[in-house]
């Protein structure tokens, strides 16, 4: 009896030392990890600082120079700010339309492709792998690449931006949609099959109604992202608010009031779309508040 207690006490001591040594090792590893991370961060920051035209500390006092210039000029000409907001309203509509059309086209194509790459739903399982890789590439190519090439072929304007964003959206939504569709219950499909429905009918009436809320919610999130992308693509010559902003900026002082008007429009649009989209998405995924 005493024998057993003694050995169990010994074992307990063993376990304790083992545990402590393992803890020490773990702490060492995570400490080393953190150290490497911090070193990378510092080295990276120093490199970036070095390769930049102006250093971080030198530029710090000047961060507010430009906003101050813009604001003071906008303040001086505050009387025509409403007129400017009105003047740039069509550009805002264009920016929103680029994002809207791109999201819509991306969601339609992405939706179709997503059903083709979902295991269990795909009509041609051999096509899953190649279509998935195509979606991966669509997702990986930055919008600006496609936009710039299309601007070369089609000329500047909203259409290159729309196509570029639509391509990326197709890739992104295709993947997300397929993940949703994969988890949808298959019961309705069997029911439809039993009455002789074809593949298109099975998808349209068996899957789409089930996944619609989630798909819609992802598409809305994408729309919020695309509004930003559409503004930023304008800056490289693809129409909308971004294009006007670049023109006002390259003019410099004297058109800062216009830049201010564009900043305001952009900010308000982004915040509004984010808020609306957020609450809509909440309703879609969690159901309407009773």
């Amino acid at each position: 009896m005493t024998d057993i207690t003694a050995s169990s006490a010994a074992r307990q001591a063993d376990v304790t030392t083992l545990y402590l040594s393992e803890m020490r090792l773990r702490r060492l590893y995570s400490g080393a990890g953190v150290l490497i991370f911090v070193l990378l961060l510092v080295a990276g920051f120093l490199t970036a600082n070095d390769r930049n035209a102006g250093g971080f500390l030198n530029g710090l006092p000047h961060i507010f120079d430009f906003p101050a210039d813009v604001m003071s000029e906008a303040w001086e000409k505050a009387y025509d700010l409403p007129a400017l907001l009105w003047q740039y309203f069509p550009s805002l509509i264009e920016t929103i339309n680029i994002a809207g059309a791109a999201t819509l086209i991306g969601a339609l194509i992405g939706g179709m492709l997503s059903l083709l790459v979902t295991r269990g739903l795909a009509p041609a399982p051999w096509a899953i792998w190649p279509i998935r890789r195509v979606l991966d590439i669509f997702r990986a190519v930055p919008e600006i690449v496609i936009a710039l090439i299309l601007i070369f072929i089609l000329g500047g304007g909203p259409i290159p931006a729309m196509i570029a964003i639509a391509v990326h959206t197709t890739g992104a939504l295709g993947k997300l949609f397929s993940e949703v569709a994969e988890n949808a219950p298959q019961g309705p499909l069997e029911g439809l099959r039993s009455v002789g429905a074809g593949w298109t009918q099975r998808m349209l009436f068996g899957i789409v109604p089930q996944v619609a809320p989630n798909w819609l919610s992802y598409a809305l999130l994408r729309f919020e992202i695309n509004i930003r992308a559409s503004a930023i693509l304008g800056f490289v010559g693809a129409g909308g608010l971004g294009y006007d902003l670049r023109n006002a900026m390259s003019w410099g002082p004297g058109k800062f009031d216009e830049a201010a008007a564009i900043f305001i429009l952009l900010f308000v649009t982004i915040v509004t779309v984010d808020q609306l989209g957020g609450s809509l998405r909440n309703r879609l995924t969690k159901g309407a508040k009773a």
Partner: peptide, 13 residues
Amino acid sequence: VVLSRAYGPGPLT
């Protein structure tokens, strides 16, 4: 756009 006025071109911006 705002930061590139303070820092000029480069990765830091």
